[in-house]
């Protein structure tokens, strides 16, 4: 079995903006062992068939994060994705550049916006110059403090999450999952002395544009789980500052809303977050909705044993001032 090979068909995205009017897909076929990594296959294509194929890579060991690309429409590190399962499922392997980044040539994308978002979260320790480092040793951390970093130190900045993120695609104001997971890493770092300031700033710098769709967590080859750390940041930002932005106001408003009856009062929530304009919606949409769905004007019924919900809130939550 060790020597058995399969006929592998690759359809590779090719585009040179300097010369091509539009992108095209070029087909390459070669015989490879099923366990061959996609990156190895692409390097063989470049060495043996087509020296013009352009791609970015370095370590070949899933450490450097350079070779992230789309393999059969999914964000993957080419170096750790074997061709066998891809061929078994889809019959061929479609190779495309990362999404949400401009293509420079073939599989190489412009990384500048990705790194600009990273720089913006200030990815370094911010220390208080009046407090010197402990004498004679580095900053010791307890196991509990180390645990708070969760999986975030594993991030190799491959941008697979950035490529998969629908908020990045739709809104340049969203810094992307990687930058936010990095921000989390500094917010929980016991040596950092700008926690509050970081949380306050990110409230207006796109935190609340995260859709919690978890596509980043699904795409991440290192299981950093950015969407879950973004959730943590949201809770910490509310604890630090309360509901200062539409996003945090909405989360707090929702929490207080269901405390009243146990069920959501849709109209009340919309009014709380978006004001009377949001209630009516644009161009008569609100009125159309009321005509089709008149019960949104009524308050929901009260659940039975609502007092249990109230007691749970009393135990685990402090009452927020109404937004």
């Amino acid at each position: 079995m060790a020597n058995s090979t399969v006929r592998a068909t690759f359809d590779v995205y090719r585009y040179d903006p300097a010369h091509d009017a539009a992108p095209r897909y070029q087909r390459y076929e070669l015989d490879l062992a099923p366990h061959t990594p996609v990156l190895t296959a692409l390097l063989r294509i470049r060495a043996e068939i087509d020296p013009t194929l352009t791609l970015r890579y370095s370590c070949r060991s899933a450490i450097c994060g350079s070779c992230a690309m789309q393999v059969n429409s999914k964000s993957r590190l080419a170096c750790e994705t074997q061709i066998g399962p891809e061929l078994a499922r889809d019959g061929r392997i479609v190779i495309e550049p990362m999404r949400n980044q401009k293509v420079l040539r073939d599989l190489v994308v412009e990384q500048e916006p990705f790194w600009r978002n990273y720089d913006k979260i200030r990815p370094h320790l911010i220390l208080d110059p009046t407090k010197p480092m402990p004498e004679g040793r580095e900053n010791p951390m307890t196991p509990e403090q180390v645990e708070r970093f969760r999986e975030t130190p594993r991030c190799i900045a491959c941008a697979a999450c950035y490529s998969a993120c629908p908020a990045v695609e739709a809104d340049p104001g969203f810094p992307g999952p990687m930058a936010l997971a990095k921000l989390y890493r500094f917010v929980v770092d016991p040596r950092d002395q700008a926690h509050q300031d970081r949380l306050v700033r990110i409230q207006t710098d796109g935190l609340w544009l995260c859709l919690r769709c978890h596509l980043c967590t699904e795409a991440c080859p290192k299981d950093v789980r950015p969407s879950e750390r973004i959730r943590d940041l949201k809770e910490m930002a509310i604890a630090a500052q309360g509901g200062t932005e539409p996003g945090s106001r909405h989360a707090i408003g929702f929490k207080e809303n269901i405390r009243e009856r146990g069920l959501l009062s849709e109209m009340k929530l919309v009014r709380q977050t978006s004001g009377i304009g949001g209630l009516l919606g644009e161009a008569g949409q609100g009125l159309r909705m009321v005509r089709k769905k008149p019960e949104i004007l009524k308050r929901p019924h009260r659940i039975e044993h609502l007092e249990e919900v109230e007691k749970i809130y009393e135990s685990l939550d402090h009452r927020e001032a109404p937004p």
Partner: peptide
């Protein structure tokens, strides 16, 4: 007696 699930928003405010 079932209450709302929190719809992801309560999770953001208080896990």
């Amino acid at each position: 007696s079932f209450s709302c699930c929190g719809s992801g928003f309560v999770d953001e405010a208080n896990e």
